[in-house]
């Protein structure tokens, strides 16, 4: 038995070594850099303990960014999930056009973020030549819709960027939820319909329990991605006042201020939230297995 174990270890060792080299070693080095004053350029670095964490926790921009990341997460845990579930349920009964709709919905998702962002910036949001120029005269400055007049101003920029990212993302959720919904045993659905269940009851008591593991998994992934989000924010606003995220905050520290140690410390905080979501998912999964 022991001989076989050795052979197993031998067989997995290349993959293990590769994983260690590209995941473990950079991960540990990253962890170490967070406790140094490395500027990312020279090999001259000093151990500064937790000073980088003190600095970022003392910085109001960090707390603004963290607040924005939390807002972003809440937006993504609700709006695209609701749209995705609704459209998936609507597509479930469509036999012929189901595939076509999925392809259409996936369109924005398969386009590069920079393409989507530039399309929105130039065609819709551009006050010189975009759709905004046409509709702005009809939006009074003192109305509730006034923020739409300047969609990238700091008070609404976060929501505008989130809207564009949600536009690109919800189609993917639709496809994932639809795939999960199709796994629902048909006999359960038919039995419920025979019992007179309406659409809401059907969803609540038949479909939702079936797709719950998928919904939970997507919740965790959305949370992780929300704390890592970067492309749309960086391309559309560069972060900054109103839409600074932890990722753009870290980027600015690394590439503009040459404070890599502090950027890495920020990155660790971002990872901590993702880790928290992962723990939650593992805990839920184990609970489900026990049940």
């Amino acid at each position: 038995m022991r001989r076989w174990s050795f052979q197993y270890y031998l067989l997995i060792s290349p993959a293990l070594l590769l994983s260690a080299m590209i995941v473990l070693v950079p991960g540990l080095l990253t962890l170490l850099v967070a406790f140094t004053d490395w500027n990312g350029v020279s090999f001259d670095l000093n151990w500064v303990g937790v000073a980088n964490f003190h600095k970022i926790f003392d910085d109001r921009i960090f707390w603004n960014a963290l607040g924005n990341n939390i807002r972003w997460t809440l937006l993504f845990l609700t709006i695209p999930v609701a749209i995705g579930l609704l459209t998936a349920m609507l597509l479930l009964k469509r036999r012929r056009t189901k595939t076509l709709y999925q392809l259409i919905y996936l369109g924005p998702y398969v386009l590069a973020p920079v393409t989507n962002a530039i399309l929105w910036l130039n065609i819709v949001l551009n006050p010189a030549s975009g759709l905004l120029r046409q509709i702005r005269p009809y939006i009074p400055r003192d109305s509730l819709l006034a923020p739409l007049r300047s969609p990238l101003s700091p008070d609404v920029a976060l929501f505008t960027v989130a809207a564009v990212d949600i536009w690109h993302y919800w189609g993917f959720l639709t496809v994932v939820y639809l795939a999960a919904l199709r796994q629902t045993p048909q006999e359960l659905v038919e039995a419920a319909m025979v019992e007179g269940a309406n659409a809401l009851q059907l969803f609540r008591h038949i479909y939702l329990p079936t797709i719950l593991p998928t919904v939970l998994l997507m919740f965790v992934l959305i949370t992780i991605f929300s704390f890592l989000t970067f492309e749309y924010v960086y391309i559309m606003t560069n972060g900054g006042t109103g839409s600074e995220m932890l990722s753009t905050y870290a980027y600015n520290q690394a590439f503009h201020k040459f404070q890599y140690g502090r950027a890495v410390a920020t990155g660790l905080v971002m990872s901590a939230f993702g880790l928290l979501a992962s723990f939650f998912y593992v805990w839920m999964s184990r609970r489900e297995i026990r049940a």
Partner: peptide, 15 residues
Amino acid sequence: GEDYFNLNFLDAVSL
């Protein structure tokens, strides 16, 4: 005015 955050140099020269 309200477009400072929504104009780049190309847009600005266009205007």
